[in-house]
Simulated scan of single mutants.
Amino acid sequence: MALVTQDSRNIGEDSGHGLGERMRKLLRGHSIEITAKDVNSLSEAAQLVPAGTSISVTFLPGEDVDARVAAAGAAKRLGFSPVSHISARRLKSTAELETFLSRLAQHGVESAFVVAGDPAQPEGPFEDALAVIQSGLLAKHGIGRVGISGYPEGHPQISEEKLWRALKDKHAALKVLGHECEITTQFGFDAGPVLTWLERVREEGIEAKVRVGVAGPASVKTLLRFAARCGVGASAKVMAKYGVSITKLLTTAGPDRIIEEFASGLNPRIHGDVALHFYPFGGVKNTAEWVAHFAGLEAVR
């Protein structure tokens, strides 16, 4: 994470040719996450985002099915590829899942991201993401590409052993059922753990595309708040590494430094197919503008 300044340049201008190309590739294949409330913001940013970009629509408590379906439909109409999130433990019945998937199909949605969700106990018949995958309902309603979660820095409530078992089981189930699999990670502030985790992913025989989560430009105070809420490591050591101190909490920071560090250490032969997934904590348009500027994509449409 590095501070964004007025004189920030497009990537590659002061980087080695190979590094600049790797950074551009990561940025050009990026995806963006939105909530159902971000539809207007996505519309405002549409001209800055390449057509066909994957737009993830979260499954947050307090947002109803109508809002989630409407957001996915809006993303589709804007020329993007909506990825509707499904929180397994928040589903109260199989019928609720069927209805949701059926309505998404009416908008041409072909991708979903399945996660267990936050409730300690399921509110219905689905214990976890694997249960939703194995139900066969995703394929029944035209979902071909399925995203699952990855945790390079671990999970505060789940052991590392269980995380790896869950990842391998979900990947295997999707392969058996004929789905295309993608893995999207939680956002972080340090590239090192991500690269180490990616290496193990490939050693475990998982060849799926991995979308590495990074936070879009936002105030440092906002980034720290989301990090604490999501259980992301944001130690004083890591924050200092990226030039952020307690006296700069209201300063806007963007992910240019961590992306450069990540691209520097990325080796496709070891780490496989990788792209970036942006969490726009500072706003969808701000994130889209940042990506367009740093990737040299100011006129994408």
Rank of each mutant, 00 (worst) to 15 (best):
A292V: 03
F59H: 08
V244A: 15
G188W: 11
L297F: 10
A51Y: 10
T247I: 10
R257K: 07
A120R: 09
V115A: 02
M23L: 09
K248P: 01
A95R: 12
V49L: 08
F294S: 08
T185L: 06
G213C: 09
A173T: 01
L174R: 02
A299V: 14
T58C: 12
S41G: 04
V132G: 06
P255I: 04
G150T: 00
L104T: 02
S87W: 00
S15P: 01
A105E: 09
V39M: 00
V210D: 07
P61N: 03
V284W: 07
K140L: 00
R28W: 05
A112Q: 00
K162C: 01
E298R: 15
H293P: 04
K285C: 03
L223Y: 12
K237P: 13
G117I: 05
R229F: 13
V176F: 03
K25G: 05
L195H: 08
T251Q: 14
A253K: 12
G144Q: 10
R200G: 12
F126S: 02
F226E: 15
V132T: 08
E182Q: 12
R24F: 05
N10R: 12
D7R: 14
T99H: 03
T251C: 10
A172C: 06
H107Q: 07
H271L: 00
A191R: 11
I32G: 02
E96K: 01
V212F: 14
T184W: 10
V212I: 15
V300G: 08
F187R: 03
F113T: 08
A191L: 05
V114R: 08
Y242I: 04
P152Y: 07
K140D: 01
V39E: 04
A275H: 10
A112T: 03
E123W: 06
R77A: 11
L167V: 03
S111C: 13
A236C: 04
H171S: 15
R229E: 05
M1Y: 09
A2I: 06
D38G: 02
R103P: 10
K241N: 14
S111R: 14
G150A: 04
S81C: 04
I86Q: 01
A227S: 15
I11S: 09
L174T: 03
G62P: 04
A288K: 01
G29Y: 01
R200K: 15
L60K: 00
P125D: 02
S102H: 11
K76M: 14
A88R: 02
T184I: 11
A240F: 06
H179P: 06
A263W: 06
A2S: 09
E204G: 04
K209R: 15
N267E: 14
L104E: 03
G192K: 05
C181Q: 06
A215I: 02
V146H: 01
R211L: 02
I133S: 05
